[in-house]
């Protein structure tokens, strides 16, 4: 077994309204920044024990499916690196 760092990035599905993102983008506009498509997500970092990177990625993905992300409205991405 080895330790792996997994980073789970959770984002709202594209069709789901992101009120926080809209308000934040609005203020950036007022401040003079010409940005668009601002979406706010969650960044979750964790360390997990696994026999290889593949298993670590699988475990992190399971955690994301079961708890970290809400499949009804969110998608997620997992990145794993050895520690």
């Amino acid at each position: 077994m080895a330790a792996f760092e997994a980073v789970v990035t959770v984002t709202l599905k594209p069709e789901i309204l992101d009120p926080a993102g809209e308000a934040t983008q609005g203020v950036l506009h007022h401040m003079g920044y010409a940005v668009r498509d601002l979406r706010i997500g969650r960044h979750i970092r964790l360390t997990v024990e696994a026999k290889d990177a593949e298993e670590a990625e699988g475990l992190a993905g399971q955690m994301a499916e079961e708890l970290l992300a809400n499949p009804v409205m969110e998608t997620f991405r997992v990145e794993v690196s050895a520690l």
Binding site: K13, E15, I16, L17, D18, P19, A23, V72, M73
Partner: peptide, 12 residues
Amino acid sequence: LRPTVQVGDPFL
């Protein structure tokens, strides 16, 4: 059949 979830925006 679950429709796309509606998100409330109390600010708006």
